[in-house]
């Protein structure tokens, strides 16, 4: 087991062709460390979402390679990518995280259902207890608050014990109290459960929960910060902006 959970090597992603082509990612080289919460920051259009989509096997890079949990996935077939997402990757999106027809509990166990794997009751109890969702499990997503929905999404991402969880603006739609809850939980999952998490955000406060922050601008890696606080993040952003 190496200490690198995911790495990008000279990652390039071009949308479109000819004069209208956009280089969303322009040669990114980075290793993400196992057992860390890594935040990816940058202004709109910096390519941070594309970077995460490529890392997670949701999008194919134009050139360069992506290695997730020791496997070079950038040239994999759709079938193998599906299997990768099912077994080794968890997701939390900004919104629309839950299947509206399923209850909270059914949403949490969905990845196991899809993979037809048995539910580990102990692990489920631990996750549910940690997230404080015990009394909401029979509710449909429409009956949950925004913060509760994102916590269910986090539980779903963790239930299958994936190698890495990708979170795309997980607190983008939440108020500050709910944000703190969700981010606190993601950090605890790293510290207490040994999970690896990669999170895209544009909010310095959110980035302050990370072990390490990567700064992207115009498709390039322009900076990095270890053990950040909101103040140091802001400072770095200001420097990148100049």
């Amino acid at each position: 087991m190496s200490d690198v959970i995911a790495s990008a090597n000279d990652l390039v992603k071009v949308y479109g062709e000819g004069p209208t082509a956009v280089r969303a990612l322009d040669g990114i080289d980075v290793d993400l460390v196992r057992g860390e919460l890594t935040a990816v920051m940058g202004p709109s259009g910096s390519g941070k979402s594309t970077f995460m989509h490529c890392l997670a096997g949701l999008d194919r890079p134009t050139s360069g390679s992506v290695v997730v949990d020791g496997a070079e996935v950038s040239r994999w077939s759709e079938r193998r990518l599906t299997h990768l997402r099912r077994t080794r990757v968890g997701f939390v999106f900004q919104s629309y995280n839950l299947v509206p027809t399923l209850t909270a509990l059914e949403n949490i166990t969905l990845p196991l259902d899809i993979a037809r794997r048995p539910v580990d009751r102990q692990h489920l109890d631990l996750v549910v207890r940690t997230l404080g969702l015990g009394d909401r499990l029979d509710h449909k997503p429409s009956e949950l608050s925004g913060g509760q929905q994102q916590r269910v999404a986090c539980a779903r991402a963790l239930i299958a014990r994936p190698a890495v969880v990708f979170a795309d603006e997980p607190t983008g739609n939440l108020d500050s109290a709910s944000s703190a809850e969700v981010l606190g939980f993601l950090r605890r999952s790293v510290d207490e459960l040994g999970q690896s998490v990669v999170m895209v955000t544009h909010d310095p406060t959110s980035a302050g929960f990370a072990h390490r922050v990567l700064f992207l601008a115009d498709g390039r890696l322009v900076g990095e910060l270890r053990d950040p606080t909101p103040a140091t993040v802001l400072e770095q952003l200001g420097a990148a902006g100049r």
Partner: peptide, 16 residues
């Protein structure tokens, strides 16, 4: 479309 995308993202196969 979004719901299908979500299901596919969490690992639902095409056949499923």
């Amino acid at each position: 479309t979004r719901e299908i995308g979500l299901l596919r993202a969490v690992g639902l196969g095409r056949v499923q």
